[in-house]
Design a protein around this nucleic acid. Structure first.
Ligand SMILES: [Mn+2]
Ligand SMILES: [Mn+2]
Ligand SMILES: [Zn+2]
Ligand SMILES: [Zn+2]
Lengths: 140, 140
DNA sequence: ATCACAAATGCGACATACTTGCAAAAAAAT
DNA sequence: ATTTTTTTGCAAGTATGTCGCATTTGTGAT
């Protein structure tokens, strides 16, 4: 995926955003990373160049505009990702490490659901999460 | 399910707990409710009879002892439920209302997973959540 | 029934993740 | 260049959960 500053800025403007430095950097991070990121991880990668509150505001704005997608919310962080492989109603499944908090997309993992959720309920979105240990945390 | 004070106290003592007033009331709530409850919901039902910290401690202790099960963690609350229909590794799926936060167990909803989660990863638990609107919140 | 002791509770302080108000700075419009 | 709008940084606030410690409670022994 192209990730030079000019095309990032264009993508931002097409989505209705001013192409500010902070937004360009955050969007670039997601494109380079290719995996879900939390506000904290973004701050660690960017250093103190952007305020905490600004990162939160950028993430919210991107999500509202459809540029990002809130992939999964665990007890600690929300993680965001590019909506590449996600429809609006069906999130692809994710893995989350209970030790270090790392989140990964499960690309080769299919989930099939059968049955009714009950009368009067409206399903909008499906979240599937596998919790466990990542390779790094496996051997304690 | 029996829910009189004496049998609740017995159940608590069998599980290695002192049958304190707060624990009897919390356990009784879960048996009566038949659905996942959060600390906040418990407080609303009990009123100010129990301290916030005590409710949290009771929920943790019950979970550690196997009396409760942490059904699902969203960004806001943890919800707990009786472990009736849950194995250790496979939680049954749940529904969560994005408007009021209510959580319900999906009994007639089956999830089948296929595929690998990736080399070196250890899967310990599976969580499936359908988000949407409950009957009460459906008509806005 | 009373007592002694371990365990549980209430309370206040703390932790973390996230949000909000507001004034200053930056971008866009004129 | 000047005005208007948007975004940002900073600090304070909110929501959920945790912890230490003095006080209270439940329990088993007397
Ligand atoms: Mn993903
Ligand atoms: Mn359930
Ligand atoms: Zn890990
Ligand atoms: Zn609802």
């Amino acid at each position: 995926m192209k990730a030079d500053r000019t095309s990032l800025s264009d993508l931002l403007r097409v989505s209705g955003f001013k192409a500010t430095e902070g937004r360009v950097e955050v969007l670039g991070l997601f494109i380079k990373a290719g995996r879900p990121l939390s506000q904290m991880q973004i701050m660690e990668m960017l250093g103190p160049r952007l305020d905490r509150a600004s990162v939160y505001r950028i993430l919210s704005a991107f999500t509202e505009a459809g540029l990002l997608h809130m992939a999964y919310v665990d007890g600690r962080h929300r993680v965001y990702e590019l909506p590449d492989k996600c429809g609006h109603s069906h999130c692809h499944p994710h893995f989350s490490c209970r030790s270090c908090g790392m989140t990964a997309c499960l690309e080769d993992f299919q989930v099939k659901c059968k049955g009714s959720i009950g009368k009067g309920f409206v399903a909008e979105r499906q979240k599937v999460l596998i919790e466990g240990l990542c390779p790094g945390c496996k051997g304690k």
